[in-house]
Structures are given as C-alpha cells and as structure tokens.
Design a binder for these strands. Structure first.
Lengths: 209, 209
DNA sequence: CTTTGACAACCGAGCGCTCGGTCAGTAGCG
DNA sequence: CGCTACTGACCGAGCGCTCGGTTGTCAAAG
C-alpha cells in the first residue's frame, strides 16, 4: 500500500504534494511570474516535461495553491469558532484561528494573497469568490460583536474588518519561524493590540503585568 | 524656459515623470514581471525603444520607483513629526504622516512594498537600506513612547512596531480613492484601533461619542 | 532674417534568448 | 500487458534591449 509506483524512487511524500509545496515556496519568494517551470522541476528532481503529468499548466498550479490556501484558512477559523459562544470570545478565537493558519503555511497563503492577480478568467473568479465567502465569516463575527455592544460602533463593520485583516495579513511577509517570536506570541500581540490598543490607560503605572 | 524640446508634443508634464507614474501603476496592478515594456510604451504614447532614452533598463525603472516611494514616505512622516513634542502625540502624528503618504501615492508605495524582491544586487541593497533607515524612525518613536510609559511595555518595541506597520501597510491593497472612506477616515480608524483598541470598555453603553 | 549645428527626444527594425508547453517514447511495477 | 510516472528533444511566442537613423527646437554665427 505504501509508495513506489512507476519510476518514483524518492521520499514517501507523493510528487504531486511536493510539487504544490515547492511551487508555493518559490512563488512566495520570487513571485509567480519570476518563477520558472525549469527551476521548479529541478528543485523537485524531475524533468520539466514531467510537471505536466501532475498539473495542466503553470496557471493551474497557482490556482490549486490559492484554493488550498483558502480552504485551510477557513477550516482553521471554523474549527477555532466551534463551541465558542460569547461575541467577544468569538472575535478572539477567529483571530487565533486565522493567525495559526497563516503562520503554519506561510508559502501557501502569501502566494494566494499577492499572486491572485496573476490568475484570470474562471479560475480567478472562483478564488475571489472563495475569498469573499471567507471574509463574510470574518465580517459577520465582527458585526455580531458590534451588535452585542462589545466592539465599538464608532466605525462600520466594514471598516473594523479591514483594520483587522490589515493587522493579520501583512504578518506573513516578515514572519520567520526561526525568529524570537513564536506563533503564540504573535497571536497574543495582535489580539491585544486589536482589542485593547497599545496605549497604557491614564493613571496607570508602568508594567501593568 | 517652459517645455517643448525635441519631438514632444504632449501635455506639459515631462515624459520621464509620466513614465515613472505609469510604470508604478502598471507594476502595482499587474506586477513587475508581468508588465512589459511594450504595454508601458504604448500607454505612454511612444515607441518601446524610446523608453531607453529615459531609463537604462526595466530594473532601473523599478529601482527609481522604490527610491521615490521611500523618499516620499519618510518626508511625509518627518514633516508630520516636526514641532510635535509629546511621546504619544508623536506616535499619533507618525501614523498620520505614514497613512497620508501611502494613500496619496498608492502605486508607488504598493510597488515598492511587493516588488522590492525583484531587485537584485546593489540596487536592492540600497533600497533595503533606505527602508531600514525609515523603519528605524518608526521604531524610535515607538520606543520613546514606551519609555515614557504611554505605550504598553508588555510587548517589545520590535513587536509593537511590527503590529503598527502591519496595520498601516496592507491598506494600499484594497484602498480605493473612490470609496466611501476618505483618507481622514482611514487615518482615524487606524489611530483609534492601534492606540485604544476596538473593544468597548466594560460598563460603558454603546456609542461612546 | 537666415543659416547652421548641436542636442534632446524619439523611431523602426530586429536580435538573441528564455519561457511555457507539446509529444512520442520508455522504464518500472502489479 | 497495462498503467503510472517520467523523459528528452523540440517548438513558437514574446520578452528586454540595441542601434543607426530621423525630427523638431534653440542659440549663436553670418
């Protein structure tokens, strides 16, 4: 049942999966258009023509990356939201779910976020549709917290959602898993900043902790 | 003394300036590598070969855009910081200066932020150096507010700075000058979220304003 | 007022190269 | 034998860039 059909002699992970992961990495680092099928096949250890046994085109590869990215983000957030009831707690959990997904698969999500524009036609429409559906979940969660009076109503749901996604999405461009900040720390940072802000309340001495 | 040497018959703005602005727009919308010198020259209304009278290469064009972008951001922030004394007021002013610059020249700054990776060698090093020098200004401003006890010390200066830039930088990807939110509104949104957070303090009724 | 020459700005043809993609064929396994 | 996985030789298109030449403008010379 385990590996080893055809000519494959490499590690157990199927070539198709390795292709997706390696392509995502290359697209994130160099960009979609600057990445070549030659480099990619070399990194995989196969010939360029063999790529087309697994995917139908370079565009198809990007499309699959985007779909996989959005599926994982949405799954992570939905899992984080399950069994959480309070409106503020739900915002909190949503942020954690989003950040966890982001930091676990940086290559995938960074590629989706910045290279989506390279897609065209139906593939683009479909991915944009998926993204919009995900953002609707975020928006609804924010809206419910506003209606419950726990999130400010000074700004519209739209505005607050944008501020939230701004804070969360840029992370993958600079985050390094080797850095001093682990995912937990990032999670705490963003949740605190978005919810409480960075200002120390007046009349408080330093180091509130 | 005013315009009109050579074959130029078009609007008063010099071709070199129009080139930079149009290239920045094209790079932002399509990406650097997906943009062709043919499209660009067509948009400018000149022949492809004529581009090389104004710039030495496509890379050179990107380099100039990045330099111009960072110069403008830094100038805008330094102007906003001039004559502002209080540590918290300085953070506030810095955010306004950054956002104002961002939203005024979206094409330039978005290109710099996402296409910097397409540069190589000395040009890349130089732009990265400029960016680091700018971020040092931001970091110092944050650090001074922390030392004064007005910004939280629960997170390091590095962490707070990243959260701040996260919030501010992603904006240019979705901001539209035709939308309902003007620059002033965005400015207020981000300043409020970063400093006070989005949560309504316990024991407060809705609509604090 | 005309001539001349230097120069800025631009043109058109085209070159060398790399790219994504094709296709007939083949090795290894069940 | 058939299927999966892969190969190697090969396109045609489009890319960035070059180069010799041309055109319009201004300043000084005659």
């Amino acid at each position: 049942m385990t590996g080893g059909r055809g000519r494959r002699k490499r590690a157990d992970e199927p070539t198709a999966d390795r292709l997706l992961a390696l392509a995502a990495r290359q697209f994130r680092v160099k960009g979609f258009h600057a990445s070549t099928t030659r480099e990619l096949s070399a990194a995989l250890g196969i010939e360029k023509s063999s790529l087309y046994y697994h995917v139908s085109s370079k565009d198809d590869l990007l499309y699959r990356i985007c779909v996989e990215s959005l599926n994982r983000i949405q799954a992570s957030v939905e899992e984080a939201l399950a069994d959480v009831d309070g409106p503020l707690e739900r915002v909190d959990a949503m942020m954690s779910g989003h950040i966890a997904a982001m930091l676990e698969d940086r290559d995938l999500h960074a590629t989706m976020l910045v290279e989506l524009r390279a897609l065209a036609g139906e593939q683009r429409d479909e991915v944009v549709g998926m993204r919009d559906r995900y953002e609707a979940i975020v928006r609804d969660t924010v809206a419910q917290a506003q209606e419950a009076g726990v999130l400010t109503a000074v700004f519209t749901t739209h505005e607050l959602t944008l501020a939230l996604l701004n804070l969360l999405n840029w992370t993958i461009f600079w985050y390094s898993p080797d850095g001093v900040d682990g995912a937990d720390r990032i999670d705490e940072l963003f949740r605190t900043v978005f919810l409480q802000g960075a200002v120390v309340p007046a009349g408080t001495t330093r180091e509130p902790a």
